[in-house]
Design a protein around this nucleic acid. Structure first.
Lengths: 226, 226
DNA sequence: TTTGCTCCGATTGTCGACAATCCTAGGTAA
DNA sequence: TTACCTAGGATTGTCGACAATCGGAGCAAA
């Protein structure tokens, strides 16, 4: 190899990770055209692996590809985000229902501990909202894992996860509703502890609806400003 | 180009389609290793486009890839199928609920007509169950379209669709429960006509649960025989 | 000015060859 | 016999170059 392989696996996998990161953090703007030769040189690899990475991202819906016309970063317009949150509500609700019967006591305890750390972080640094968001996504992903449904985990993890993070980065400069969200997380964990799947699902669906409402309002504000 | 481009777009897209078809129909057995050079020659193309196609299929979970160890056709074991049907129940239920308010009268009428054709086909040829399955998938996909949720359509269409078809091919030689399924489809359409989303969702969830129960029993029988 | 055509640069799509890696068969020693 | 080590072949990963295609600049005619 040339210099180093910070990640593991093939160059295409490395490129996919780095591209995904650049897209999620906004380093690559929404709708921006992705030049294969330029990116390949920046990553220090040939166009072959890079093209494979783009195919991968296409499958994750992080980029859109048009034959003979190139690849572009996806644009998260209002409709797209609305659709994502709709699907998320159904899938994460289902994950909660299953997790209530499938998760071990230890896992639920870990989840509770995660929220403790989460709460501490909020108290300490109010400004660093980013880490809050990552912690929030951790919480949701742990529940997805708890469902024991591989398909569900993959959908919520690999695919939507990235789009969600992307959305978070876009809206994270504004003050987010960290405190009510934490409260709702606590309620969900409580439902899991009681092994009440129906309640856990209900609470999760409400939680996600609330998140969407909040983000939706932010988008409205942004559009007013523009 | 060499001989013909039956499909449109790049060679990688063509390869992806042909491979997907071969996998779904069982021409490529589950768990079979896919040799890049061999497939490339069979399709009359270089290994580059073929590798891109494999990446695409990997995203659809039709194949599993291990770095430096090749790509294999996915194996649909009992657990995987169970997971798929679980997710399907949640997503298609949601699609029905949305479709009840989003579909136009014309679309619902078309759906009803689709079932008429469907019924005729069943009466004519009892043996050709395959076409029934395809028709069934059409029915489900039309409802997904009716939800007007792009993310949902994509998940139910591009991704799960292929796995479902694959499953159908595997179990279609046995007699399937075409008549009760048709009956349930009729009920769902009726709920859509009444614009009763909750009922439509309930019926769809039951319908899918029934399908899973039926397939699950078939798998049990197959395992007994083996 | 505007519309349409042509040519050219840029970018994508594809191929063949080379390097890196892994699996296996065979042999050797305990 | 069994375990381990070692080539050898086969397969995957990667690169550079060539062909095909697209978008736009520039010019000409209405």
């Amino acid at each position: 190899m040339l210099v180093k392989v910070p990640e593991q696996g093939t160059l295409a996998d490395v490129a996919a990770h780095r591209l995904a990161h650049s897209i999620v953090t906004g380093e690559l703007a929404q709708g921006q055209k992705l030049n294969e030769a330029e990116l390949a040189e920046r990553f220090g690899m040939g166009r072959g692996p890079l093209r494979e990475a783009l195919r991968h991202l296409e499958g994750m819906r992080l980029v859109t590809r048009i034959p003979n016309a190139g690849t572009r970063v996806v644009v998260l317009d209002r409709k797209t985000l609305s659709d994502i949150y709709g699907v998320r509500e159904a899938l994460e609700g289902m994950a909660c229902r299953l997790a209530a019967t499938q998760m071990s006591d230890e896992e639920i305890a870990k989840l509770s501990k995660l929220l403790d750390n989460h709460e501490e972080q909020i108290k300490k640094v109010g400004g660093k909202v980013y880490s809050q968001s990552e912690g929030d996504l951790d919480f949701h992903f742990q529940i997805a894992r708890g469902s024991r449904n591989e398909m569900l985990m993959h959908m919520l993890g690999s695919e939507q996860y990235q789009l969600l993070r992307m959305c978070r980065y876009r809206t994270s400069r504004k003050a987010t509703r960290t405190k009510p969200a934490l409260q709702q997380h606590r309620q969900i964990v409580a439902a899991l502890e009681q092994r009440d799947g129906e309640l856990a699902e209900l609470l999760m669906r409400r939680h996600i609806q609330g998140a969407w409402k909040s983000i939706s309002e932010m988008i409205d504000k942004e559009e007013e400003e523009a």
